[in-house]
Design a binder for these strands. Sequence first.
DNA 1: ATAATAGGTAACCAAAAGGTTACATATTCA
DNA 2: TGAATATGTAACCTTTTGGTTACCTATTAT
Lengths: 113, 113
Amino acid sequence: MADSMDVVFEALASPARRKILDIVKDRPGCSVKHVAGFFEVSRIAVMKHLQILELADLIVSEKDGRSRRLFFNCVPIQMIYDRWTSEYSALWASNLTKLKYRIESREKTHGRK
Amino acid sequence: MADSMDVVFEALASPARRKILDIVKDRPGCSVKHVAGFFEVSRIAVMKHLQILELADLIVSEKDGRSRRLFFNCVPIQMIYDRWTSEYSALWASNLTKLKYRIESREKTHGRK
DNA sequence: ATAATAGGTAACCAAAAGGTTACATATTCA
DNA sequence: TGAATATGTAACCTTTTGGTTACCTATTAT
C-alpha cells in the first residue's frame, strides 16, 4: 500500500524533478528538448529524471515523429494526497489543530520542563 | 520557496522515515528506543533517520532525563499540501478533473495516431 | 558507588543516485 | 540522398545515502 507509492515519493524528492513537473504541466505535450532547455545539466541527465517520473507515472509520454510528447499526470499526487488525508485527516480538520495536537501530546507526557 | 521544502520532500522520500512518522504519530512523546524497536536495522541508523526528520521539522523532540521524547509535527506536511493545492488547485477541484486534464492536453496537441 | 539503561559521536564502508562522454537510431528538411 | 534534429543506449565516474561497529556521556536504579 505505502510501498506502491515509494516511487512517487522518491520521484518528488528531487527539486529537479519537481521543476520538470512544473515545466511539463505548464506546456502539455512538450518535448524532451524543451524540458532540457531549462536545465544546465546535460540532456541525458534530464532524460534520466524523466524516466524516474514516468516510472512513478507522474509523467506520461507518447512518441510523435522524432520527438516525444510529455504530459503531466497528477493522479499519483492525488493518491498521496488521499493517503495523507486519510491517515492524518484528524490533524488537517482545521488549520489550528496542528498546534492543538502538539499541546495535547505534551500534556499527556508529564514532561519535566 | 520550493527550496525551503527540499528537506521535507527528501525526508518523506524514505519508507523508513515515513514509518517513523507513523510510529511517533501513534505514540506522541515516545523514546528513540521505542521507535528503534520497530526496525531491524541498528539504533544508530534509526537515529540518523530521526535527525533528518528533525531537520525537516517533521519531528520535534525534547530531552527528558536520560531519554528523549519525540513528537510528530504535521506543519511541514501542511505546507507541502498548501504548495501543491495552490499550484495544482485547478486539477484538484474534483476527482474527475485529473482525467479531464489529460484529455484536454492531448486534444491541444494534434497528436497523430 | 556501581550496574544497567538511553542516547550521542566518530570513523568507516557498500550501494545507489546523479552526472558525464561517446555512440546509435530514427525522422524530417533541403 | 544527405545533413540536421531529437531521442535513446552504454559505459563509466563521483558524491551522497544508509548502514555498520566501537566508543563516549548522562541518568537512573540497586
